Amino acid sequence: MAQITKHRGDKETFVVQIQYRQNATWQGKVTWADKDETKSFRSALELIKLIDSALDESESTVSQND
């Protein structure tokens, strides 16, 4: 896992670990590599919302620093 989180994308980098697949969706953990934060999710929709909110947070931080 540490090797994976060393790689960075242009905007943000997320590592998604799917632990289970139940009720036609995924459950697992997502790590925001740039901030070293890990959160659990219970559905693919929740995963998308977590990533979206992290991107919103990073964009607002960049806007404040300009």
Rank of each mutant, 00 (worst) to 15 (best):
W26Y: 08
D66A: 10
K35P: 00
T13C: 11
S40L: 13
N65W: 06
D66G: 14
V15C: 05
G28A: 07
Y20L: 08
A24W: 01
Q19W: 12
E12F: 08
G9N: 04
A54Y: 12
S43C: 02
L50W: 02
A2S: 14
G28E: 03
R8H: 13
K29P: 02
K35W: 07
K35T: 09
I4K: 12
L50K: 02
G9A: 02
T38S: 15
T25H: 09
L45V: 01
K29Y: 11
Q19D: 15
T61P: 00
Q22V: 06
D34P: 00
L47K: 04
T38L: 09
H7M: 13
R42Q: 08
L50F: 06
I48H: 05
V62M: 10
E37W: 02
A33Q: 14
T31D: 01
A24N: 09
S60W: 14
D52M: 04
F14E: 04
I18L: 14
V16K: 07
K35I: 03
A54W: 11
V30P: 01
I4R: 04
L55P: 00
E57Y: 13
E12W: 02
E59M: 09
K6A: 07
L45C: 01
A24K: 08
I51V: 15
Q22K: 12
W32N: 04
V62E: 14
S58W: 06
L47P: 03
Q22R: 14
S58A: 15
Q19Y: 11
S40R: 15
F14W: 05
G28P: 03
K35N: 11
T25G: 12
K29E: 13
T61V: 07
Y20C: 12
T5C: 08
I48K: 09
D34L: 02
Q64E: 11
R42M: 06
Q3M: 03
Q22M: 06
F41D: 03
N65K: 12
T38Q: 10
K29W: 06
E46H: 01
W26I: 02
T25A: 12
A44Y: 07
D10A: 08
T38W: 03
I4H: 07
N65P: 01
T13A: 11
Q64N: 11
N23M: 08
T38V: 14
Q22N: 10
I18T: 15
N23C: 03
V30H: 00
K29R: 13
S53M: 09
T25W: 06
I51F: 11
Q27Y: 11
Q22H: 07
E57V: 04
G28F: 05
K49S: 08
Q3A: 10
A54D: 10
D66T: 13
Q3Y: 08
S43D: 10
W32L: 09
Q17W: 12
K6T: 02
I48L: 05
S58F: 10
D34V: 00
I4Y: 05
W32G: 01
K29G: 04
H7Y: 14
G9Y: 01
Y20N: 13
W32P: 00
K6C: 04
D52S: 11
E46Y: 00
I4L: 14
G28K: 01
